[in-house]
Design a protein around this nucleic acid. Sequence first.
DNA 1: CCGTCCGGCAAAAACGTTTTAATATCGTTG
DNA 2: CAACGATATTAAAACGTTTTTGCCGGACGG
Lengths: 337, 337
Amino acid sequence: MTPGTVSIKEVAARAGVSPGTVSNVLNRPHKVAEGTRSRVEQVIRDLGFVRHGSASTLRAGHSRTVGLSVIDIGNPFFTDVAAGVEDYASDAGYAVILGNSSGDRVKEERNLRVFAEQRVRGLLITPFDDDPARLDVLRDRGIGVVLVDHPAHRPDQCSVAVNDITGGRMAAAHLVERGATDLVYVTGPLSIRQCIERRVGAEQALTAAGLDPAAHLRVVEMPAMNARAGQWAAELLLPEGVPDAVFCANDLLALGMLRGLMHAGVRVPEDVTLIGYDDIDFAAASTVSLSSIRQPTYKLGRIATELLLDECENPESHAHQQIMFQPELVVRESTRR
Amino acid sequence: MTPGTVSIKEVAARAGVSPGTVSNVLNRPHKVAEGTRSRVEQVIRDLGFVRHGSASTLRAGHSRTVGLSVIDIGNPFFTDVAAGVEDYASDAGYAVILGNSSGDRVKEERNLRVFAEQRVRGLLITPFDDDPARLDVLRDRGIGVVLVDHPAHRPDQCSVAVNDITGGRMAAAHLVERGATDLVYVTGPLSIRQCIERRVGAEQALTAAGLDPAAHLRVVEMPAMNARAGQWAAELLLPEGVPDAVFCANDLLALGMLRGLMHAGVRVPEDVTLIGYDDIDFAAASTVSLSSIRQPTYKLGRIATELLLDECENPESHAHQQIMFQPELVVRESTRR
DNA sequence: CCGTCCGGCAAAAACGTTTTAATATCGTTG
DNA sequence: CAACGATATTAAAACGTTTTTGCCGGACGG
């Protein structure tokens, strides 16, 4: 009746072998003779046996799951990363346990505990700060950790990230090249590494063009990084005077800004050029399509997972890597003159 | 040294109690005397003990994880659902294992097997077809299943969904009320239940308004449901003549359509009114903000999880429910005359 | 004062798998 | 022909919890 309860023992009994042999055809098929193997496999199919993962994990000492902790599952950026992770992990036979910290340190903490309880094989995390202590707790347990979208500061740690300084520089340089001299940088909280570095890059670009950032780059810091905040930023900004160009720290802000500008009768790109960051799908789909800085998001997830599984499965041969991708400028209507 | 290896036994030894007692303070704190309990809890903190989930699952017969299988993690609709699931599950102490089927039956199958191996306590799934056989395999194993965004056809099955016929009717009725008589329905594959039912609703609305759908509603079926497909639909559509109004089966299609229309010099809403479906965040943020049919997406995820956990934890008192939410019309610029 | 009940705890079995060491079977070689 | 190694399989011991059963002592009712 209850086919769910069929264990390796019953398979063994039915196939006329010992449980150990069944385990071998499951895990080391080459160690068992052709005849026995096919017989056991047939019984497995007949009985609808599926291995009890927990028993396996308990005895083997490690699971076939990885944890994924993201800051905001609602942001297409993280969604793309998650898709890359899920694809690679799934192909490798791993399950992905999802944790959404919602930018809340307490939630992140709680998720980490769940991952520890589940004895995930490894952890992929987009941390929102640099405190490595929490992660050490996991690492001490033998759980591999790979930082995603955050460069590791230590050589014994894998990470994949995209150069945000370069990205910021590309964005601002592009605006300047299009003739802007009065720029605005609209950003999320400046406690966020990405926001800081993109700003640094922008300042470098201005300096390189002979423009003093202090005089030519206004910074508008918003508490959130969504479209609502972007539109609000437009309302804050315009009374102070219309700039030549706006650089937003992500596309959600930029889309909101675009809407805010147009509502105020400011034309993009004729009056103001506008560029975002991340190149989410909606950037190309917005009515005035948005120039942006593209990051290899999906790839970020895939490579991170590849690194993680290598670290977990080949601990001795594994070489820790800090991979830094370069972003790419995507020019669309919002910066065409 | 390796704090990861501290087991319940060591805690017991250090606290001068038996392992069974430690297990009790973990799972039935009320059954152990105040003094012993606090002593054990202190030792747990000191040693940094964290329960081995697999051992627990093995012995207890059920895990504290739920599986979530979605069709497309890249679609904001599913992302919102996932956020609702994650929040509720996380609060209840459950971990969420994510499976992304990418609209691929084989991938979905594979994910189900992983869920079975992991012995998830329950499964939340947005199935893309009506074949219940696959799910019976899980149910026979005692794994609860709740259908998400898909009404169950059987009384022994929980489901949460939103009435798509009503939604389709609302959308079309709104367009007609705004004066449209020459409508177009842009949809994804008509093998998808949601696409079919929204169409049925639209036809009902036309009929109710005294317009024969055959004469007044053109249907454009696209192979995908993203913005690219929407823009392509505009290019297919316009040469045949500009309609009064366009109803898109989701917001991604609608955003693409909007862009396609504006590029062709067709003004929204002056020349054509446009409405989407789902009310994703980007609908409000697009330059001509998009009217849409709002679904309680996040709530869908939460309620589904609530139902699932009730089914798993109180099997005898649990009453299966097929919950059907009603959608809501959101009017924005794209249908303002 | 004796028998009974009950709260608090310990002892031990069980969950389903993996893995190690041991055993049986066979062909090969000195 | 004996000894040996290689190969295929088995038996049994783990892994860390949960849960059942039972023991002990003190409170309580008769």
